[in-house]
Structure formats: C-alpha cells, structure tokens
C-alpha cells in the first residue's frame, strides 16, 4: 500500500528500460531508476515520510511535488534543505532526513 513505479513493460508510454540506481536514506538502501527525483526514489522505496517537524515531531512527506511547499527538504551529501522533489537522484547519494528541534525544545 505505497507509492509505486509503474513497471516499464506495462507502461502505455513505452519508456526505455530503466537503469537502476541505489541511494541511502538514513543509512538504509533505497532503489530507484536513473532520472527519478530523490522524492520519487524515497516514495517508491516504501517511505511516505521524509522528515519530522520541529515543534511537534510529526512526519511529513511530499505535498506539492513541484518545489513550492518545501515539505520534502532533506540533507543530500551534506547539503541541508534540498527539496527532494526537485533534485534528481544520483547513484550513491547519501540522504539524511531532517528534524530540527526548536532552541530549548526536545532533542530529536
């Protein structure tokens, strides 16, 4: 019951066969195909949540998918605040999900 990449052989759009890529998200491997956004790879790996909010620690995922809402920001290879829906995944990318507690609040 998660997001799913349409298998290319069943796709009416008839795309070229995909090249598999693998990234890590908080240390766990996630597989996708070349050309996908980081958000797409993470969603297809079964995770719907990409970060936790600062004040209440609630899970957030992808909302707008087009770079407007900044809900999907992740740390990519050490760069913070990268919109996962805007950045294409590169094989070997190291993703860390963000959770920034407020000053004086509970540590994440």
């Amino acid at each position: 019951m998660t997001a799913r990449l349409l298998p290319f052989c069943a796709d009416p759009v008839r795309p070229a066969p995909p090249t598999p890529i693998t990234i890590t998200v908080d240390g766990a491997a996630a597989s996708g195909v070349a050309g996908q956004s980081l958000a797409g790879v993470i969603l297809a790996s079964g995770a719907l949540g990409l970060r936790r909010t600062s004040a209440s620690g609630r899970a957030r995922g992808v909302l707008c998918g087009i770079g407007i809402c900044y809900d999907c920001v992740v740390e990519v290879n050490g760069q913070r605040d990268v919109r996962a829906c805007q950045r294409r995944a590169v094989d070997g990318d190291v993703i860390t999900t963000q959770h920034d507690p407020l000053p004086g609040g509970d540590t994440g």
């Binding site: 605040d81 920034d100 407020l102 004086g104």
Partner: peptide
C-alpha cells in the same frame, strides 16, 4: 537583515 531557514541551535 537576512533570515536563514531553521537549523539546530
């Protein structure tokens, strides 16, 4: 003035 995004303290 400039304001950054949120970060840990």
């Amino acid at each position: 003035l400039l304001v950054t995004t949120r970060m840990r303290h």
